[in-house]
């Protein structure tokens, strides 16, 4: 049985999201394995250039839905239009990148369609005629094989980095304009401009060495020790989200999907479990040292050097040793 896939594109400020190309790669692969078709749908206003860009991928078509009411993303606008497109085209799978926007509308879209939604997947495999999806559970401590049940369509979102943008198959594809009238009153939310908080005082993106503290440091009193290690190494202090959420360090020290993305020469993770939202912000670091008392912590999947142990026992002698080397 051929599997037909509809991929939902995302764009911001006149640019396609990288997650969209990764979703195209995933959708192409799911369809190709079974001899099915992959198409993309893009929503917006004045998006012909983006539709043309998508049409450079091998797709059975690019559906472009344009409306002034779609100039800005709104959950109600997206769900109304996508539900209509999906009902008409009846794909087996609807594929998306697992972005904040997807988190906002895809569960609602699934509910409107009565469809299952397997979110934040890492990949899939074929079992007979079925696709089984793999996703993290328990904050990355385990992975689960998940089977979609019931009737198609199923919605599937893929975690950032699960598929590679450069594996998108290229060809000349066709763009079709789709007319959909959005009735007045459909859109209940009014979105404002995007903004960043002004109080960004450090640019960790420039730091060559970062020592990052996670919830494992237990209390803000222990930050002193973390700062000493950073000083000894000549680096900056960073943190995982819970440390900033608790107000132990300011938000601009936060590393991860909702904070800064860094790629220093050395990243030292102290008491950080290594949830994917943290990893995406630091996995490009050249050398990663992880200190964690749990040998199964996901951070060890990407660490260069791993130390399974109590950070309070490891860090003080480490500061000493580094000072010695630097002095000598």
């Amino acid at each position: 049985m051929p599997i037909d896939v509809l991929i939902v594109a995302e764009h911001q400020g006149g640019k396609l999201a990288r997650a969209t190309w990764e979703a195209v790669a995933a959708g192409q692969s799911m369809a190709a394995d079974s001899g099915g078709a992959a198409s993309v749908v893009i929503l917006g206003n004045q998006i012909s250039a983006l539709a043309d860009e998508l049409a450079k991928a091998r797709l059975s078509e690019v559906l472009a839905v344009q409306s002034e009411l779609l100039s800005n993303y709104t959950v109600d606008g997206y769900v109304f239009v996508l539900a209509k497109v999906i009902r008409e085209r009846a794909p087996d799978y609807v594929v998306l990148g697992h972005t904040y926007q997807t988190r906002d509308f895809a569960p609602k879209l699934a509910a409107v369609l009565g469809a299952g939604f397997v979110s934040d997947c890492l990949g899939y495999r074929k079992e007979n005629t079925k696709l089984i999806f793999n996703r993290q559970v328990f904050q990355g401590k385990f992975e689960a094989d998940v089977e979609p049940r019931g009737q198609p369509p199923w919605l599937i979102s893929f975690q950032s980095g699960s598929f590679r943008e450069d594996s998108v198959e290229r060809a000349e594809s066709h763009v079709s304009a789709v007319q959909i009238e959005i009735p007045p009153g459909t859109i209940r939310t009014q979105p404002g401009e995007r903004f960043r908080e002004a109080r960004q005082t450090v640019d960790l993106g420039q730091a060559e060495i970062i020592v990052a503290a996670g919830r494992g440091i237990k209390s803000p009193d222990h930050l002193e020790m973390v700062k000493k290690l950073a000083e000894a190494l000549g680096g900056e202090v960073g943190a995982s989200r819970p440390v900033c959420d608790s107000g132990w360090l300011p938000m601009d020290r936060q590393i991860g999907s909702s904070g800064q993305t860094v790629a220093p020469k050395l990243y030292v993770a102290l008491g950080i479990s290594g949830a994917i939202q943290h990893q995406v912000g630091m996995k490009g670091s050249r050398t990663i040292v992880a200190v964690n008392k749990d040998k199964e912590a996901p951070i060890f999947e990407i660490a260069t050097y791993g130390i399974v142990g109590d950070l309070f026992e490891i860090v003080p002698p480490l500061i000493e040793e580094i000072r010695k080397i630097k002095a000598g």
Partner: peptide
Amino acid sequence: PKQRILSMNLPIRKAKTEFLEGNPKEIA
């Protein structure tokens, strides 16, 4: 349910991590 967990496993480690062992001073 519209989806079901078939099985769970520990993540497969692409294991390039070098684990350092010993007492804290040796590790440091």
